[in-house]
Design a protein around this nucleic acid. Structure first.
Lengths: 216, 216
DNA sequence: CGCTGTACTATACACTGTACGTTAACTGCT
DNA sequence: AGCAGTTAACGTACAGTGTATAGTACAGCG
């Protein structure tokens, strides 16, 4: 019997395979059995390396966070903040599964901590007191998460022709009497559901607030 | 044979039952079969009213959005914006499933459009041009979505003792040499993962940016 | 050599969403 | 009243899912 030899598996290999499957077949279609099949192994073999599916999700999330570049050193702190936030958004766009992984579980793992360390360090060096630095970190992080998740979701909707058609017909069924502003701004709304400009617009609002003279 | 009589079901009844189940058993444990069992009906009976599970999700989401109060009329526009954003957050906190429902599908449905109409109307009345109003709407909405989803997620984690313990040990395993700022600010970070103050902090940053003299 | 721990397999269970075909109950028409 | 016709709910079935439990082959060590 050609049984699979012993040390063909490893956490890293499983994580890489899981990531590939999430990106090719879509995050929802991902399954442990799929990973196992891809590796030519029984489903239960994965349980030697991960206690359950969520545990594997954690590992994939942390692996992806490890791909974030370091904070640039020779620019002003607002530009450092911009770099971190844009970097995280770009990573999420490159790996759409990251949006769902970040939304469904809290920060945990060393790579994730490294990212937090980078942003918090920038804020502390800019003179923020501990509480304000922590608040600002959470605000920036949740903004990036919300804005980019939304962007990814809308892009996915646009790609699925059936869902896109349904959305269009819903929009067109709105009476201009009951929803005058939505109907009037429909083209603008469609244009502002994503893109670099939209992201930077919100990010700059936050940064402007942070730099305002009335800020603590 | 006591067969279920004909018109015991309706879309509204199914939506209400689904919502109850999501809130009692948790959004993840929700299933069509559970709803059907609760209604004393076979699983396929639901397909007379909804084409599939996502269709039911859409209906529940729109139903929840209908619970949002109207925009107050006799206050300044920043206070109107505050009211809308806080109202949406409160609704999400009262119905945690709403966070997942909003994150996983785009805006669709009349009640959702009503909410958008309210916020867009405020912004237009405040003098924002169409494009800026649309951008601001998206920014505010995604901020509320991201911040509140995160808050709900962290609160859920704190309630699960096993997950909470794992998070604590991960935090404590971080060396103060590699992660000086994270370690130093650990108490502040734990305190700023949610709460009215944290939410308002980010919201005020955005509003400050919107009211700044350099804003378009 | 035999022992032990470990990495993988096999089987099984309780679920899930939903496609398909059937049947019973109600509606309206004659 | 009797007879369609429509439709709401049913039963069955299928292809999946995550994972508990028990078993098996192999590596390294005494």
């Amino acid at each position: 019997m050609g049984r699979t030899p012993r040390n063909t598996l490893s956490s890293e290999l499983i994580v890489r395979t899981a990531l590939e499957l999430m990106e090719s077949k879509g995050t929802d279609a991902f399954s442990l059995r799929g990973v196992a099949a891809e590796l030519g192994v029984g489903p239960m073999a994965l349980y030697t390396y991960f206690r359950n599916k969520d545990d594997l999700y954690d590992a994939v999330r942390d692996h992806l966070m490890g791909l974030l570049p370091a904070v640039p050193r020779d620019v002003s702190w607002p530009d450092q903040v911009r770099a971190v936030c844009r970097g995280l958004r770009l990573l999420m766009l490159q790996h759409p599964c990251l949006a769902q992984l970040l939304a469904s579980r809290p920060l945990a793992g060393h790579e994730t901590a490294r990212v937090a360390e980078g942003l918090l360090g920038v804020l502390r060096a800019a003179g923020f007191d501990p509480e304000t630095a922590a608040r600002t970190h959470t605000t920036l992080f949740t903004y990036v998460l919300g804005a980019t998740s939304w962007e990814i979701q809308m892009a996915a909707e646009r790609r699925d022709p059936e869902a896109w058609r349904r959305l269009r017909t819903t929009m067109e069924s709105l009476s201009a009497q009951d929803f005058p502003t939505v109907v009037e701004l429909a083209p603008e709304l469609a244009r502002t559901t994503g893109g670099d400009d939209q992201f930077d617009y919100g990010l700059d609002l936050l940064l402007q607030g942070l730099q305002s003279p009335t800020h603590p």
